[in-house]
Amino acid sequence: MTTLQLKNIVKRYKSQTVLDDLSLSVADGETLVLFGPSGAGKTVLLRMVAGVIEPDEGQILIGGEDMAEVDAEHRGIGMAFQNFALFPHMSAFDNIASPLTATRSSKDAIAAGVQKVAKLLKIDHVLSHHPKALSNGQKQRTALARALAGSPPLLLLDDPLRNVDAKLRFEMRLELPRLLAAQGATVVYVTQDYKEAMALGDRIAVMSQGRIRQIGTPAEIYLAPADIEIARLFGDPTINLLDVVPKEGPDGIYVELSDVRIALPGMPGAVVGKSCVIGLRPEAIVFTKAGAPGAIPVAVEAETPLNEKTVTLVMTMRKREVLVSRPAGTPGPASGPAHIAVDGRTAFLFDKQSGALIASAAASMTRNGEAA
């Protein structure tokens, strides 16, 4: 079994603490995505696991064994980093084959292994080329292929799809989970793309300033982000955040937008009268007719078509901006007065002062066995 455990890891560069008392565990065969903005410490953490740099404090255990005295080449790790790190004097084929060659595999087994992963990554036509003749996207795919070719028990992948084109990136989001599952490897995958994190991760660890701020399944992160900043990171367009004070009526807890009540089923009574920020995802808001139940009057300020969806900026009666997202081709007003309806079952409530999540209606209803 190949598990990964990090215990109280600290890494400092002069006066800057890059990793601050960080702990996490990755189960055998699990894909854990490290997600967060640039400078969060994701790549430093990956290089530390690989043995390229050493922690100032803490333990790294692979398969239960402490790596403190184990050199990088003896850790049984496959790696693909942002800077490619290809051997310049070797062809793409030989670069990919290097881990297979190191295990003294037969020529036929090496050729078959290289061709299989190269075809998947669509670089089988450039296997004879040296790195200087490859595009950045081809270099990145070659580095990824080399990491995969040896079927290592632990894979460290540092944003391996960053430089590939949009079409291949989309295809790889579908293909990589199947490939990784087939190999049975334990994977730590770094990305700044939330869609990639949601598509590839069994769990996601959200990092910021050298700490893990939340860890959970993609559904847990999306339905119950730990704070406002994490809620902002997951979603495009970004989540709407509005100051509110929840109230309680005969039909339960609600908030008001342009004097129209938005019911918040599943919210705890403790939120009543508390200064909060409500989070409403743009896709949970729809245009509706005047006079329809829950219709909120707004003024349409701008509309932006974004291929698969159309994003509309509207203004409430009290001049609060709200983004509304709908599938491309769906009818909706492009200007002037309009009405929207909000699905309170998808709302989040955050503490106004700390930004921490107080409650998520969707998560609460899911725990209660209701459809979210």
Results as ranks from 00 to 15, higher is better:
242 L>N: 01
160 P>G: 10
20 D>K: 15
263 A>P: 02
82 Q>Y: 04
265 P>A: 04
326 R>I: 10
143 A>T: 06
144 L>F: 08
160 P>R: 09
152 P>W: 04
168 L>I: 07
100 L>S: 08
56 D>W: 14
144 L>W: 08
357 L>Y: 01
61 L>I: 13
360 S>M: 01
196 E>H: 06
273 G>D: 07
87 F>M: 11
138 Q>K: 07
22 L>G: 02
257 L>V: 14
274 K>M: 08
367 R>C: 06
330 T>L: 12
60 I>Q: 05
295 A>L: 09
12 R>M: 10
123 I>F: 01
294 G>T: 06
363 A>C: 05
220 E>V: 03
178 R>M: 08
243 D>H: 15
128 S>D: 08
158 D>T: 07
75 R>S: 05
25 S>P: 01
168 L>D: 06
364 S>D: 06
231 A>Y: 04
293 P>L: 14
207 M>V: 13
145 A>V: 01
295 A>N: 03
172 M>Q: 05
231 A>M: 06
243 D>R: 14
173 R>N: 14
332 G>D: 04
315 M>V: 07
77 I>G: 01
306 L>A: 13
69 E>R: 12
189 Y>A: 07
52 V>R: 03
15 S>R: 15
247 K>H: 12
359 A>P: 02
349 L>W: 04
65 E>M: 11
235 G>E: 00
265 P>K: 05
344 G>S: 03
26 V>C: 06
340 I>V: 05
9 I>S: 11
307 N>G: 12
92 A>P: 02
180 L>A: 12
351 D>E: 15
325 S>M: 15
371 A>T: 11
166 A>R: 07
130 H>V: 05
130 H>S: 06
124 D>Y: 00
285 I>K: 00
247 K>Y: 03
253 I>S: 04
101 T>W: 08
154 L>I: 12
124 D>K: 05
122 K>T: 04
334 A>H: 13
208 S>Q: 14
253 I>A: 04
5 Q>W: 02
335 S>T: 13
200 L>Q: 11
370 E>A: 11
231 A>L: 07
4 L>V: 15
297 P>N: 01
176 L>S: 00
196 E>A: 09
136 N>K: 06
325 S>I: 03
37 P>M: 11
214 Q>A: 12
